[in-house]
């Protein structure tokens, strides 16, 4: 079985891209399934089912979605193997720019849309910088010049990645994406897998359900902002 992790900011077009991709793979005889990670609720399971793509959905609820992802990825792989998939695609939203669900040795895709603005490629952390393929969506509604500047900035943030423009509505660009996917090797063993980058850290009173505001209630991994001061002003 081949495993691909797809991550990207909310509403960047991950589900649309995966739908087109899986359908293109199915047309080549590939048995594929999707593991969808979301937070509060997700309608995407239904979208995949309607397209007759096997899917399992995991909702992280009150937990950090990334931590939830990594705690469940092994079970996803086991599910995919039980189902006899040739290809398992995980979809998870990068809810903070520090999200980093990519695993070593597993093809990592980041989906990002040009409407998010030309500064976005440098604002997104390891999710984009450590991806193997960056899929850029919604290019059909911005100027050629903006597409070029955006692609340039993506390649500056991640010079290693292949950049593929995909129209999530029509599927235009999937041909090129498939050229990358055909070369993905089979996953040998999932044991001993490692994240490409540490997940965002959090271990403080708020992680444990604290709701009160104020330094008295802050315990653990807490960091405070710095503010500009007038000359001579005591911190």
């Amino acid at each position: 079985m081949r495993l691909i992790t797809v991550a990207g900011p909310p509403s960047s077009g991950k589900t649309a891209v995966i739908l087109h991709l899986v359908q293109a793979a199915q047309a080549e005889g590939v048995r594929a399934g999707v593991a969808k990670f979301d937070c509060i609720s997700s309608d995407d399971g239904e979208i995949y089912r309607r397209a007759q793509i096997p899917v399992c959905t995991g909702l992280s609820g009150g937990l950090c979605p990334d931590h939830f992802f990594v705690a469940n990825i092994e079970d996803c792989v086991a599910w995919g193997k039980r189902e006899g998939f040739d290809l398992l695609v995980t979809e998870s939203a990068g809810l903070c720019c520090r999200c980093s669900p990519h695993l070593r040795g597993i093809t990592a895709v980041c989906v990002i849309d040009v409407l998010s603005g030309i500064n976005t490629p440098k604002k997104i952390g390891p999710m984009l910088r450590l991806a193997d393929i960056v899929v850029v969506t919604k290019g059909d509604i911005v100027s050629q010049a903006e597409r070029e500047v955006f692609a340039f900035r993506v390649s500056r943030a991640n010079p290693r990645a292949g950049i593929v423009m995909v129209n999530g509505l029509t599927g235009q660009g999937i041909t090129n994406l498939m050229r990358y996917f055909r070369e993905i090797p089979d996953m040998k063993s999932f044991e001993g897998s490692e994240l490409r980058f540490a997940m965002p850290a959090a271990l403080c009173s708020y992680c444990l359900g604290e709701t009160r505001v104020g330094t008295t209630y802050q315990i653990g991994n807490v960091r405070h902002m710095e503010f500009p001061r007038k000359e001579g002003e005591e911190p």
Partner: peptide, 24 residues
Amino acid sequence: DPSVVRATGQKLVAQLSQQMNFIV
């Protein structure tokens, strides 16, 4: 060559359509 197709595919063609806008 397939590797060239992949690498230059995106840069070979510029597109212009009525629905494209500047957003920056």
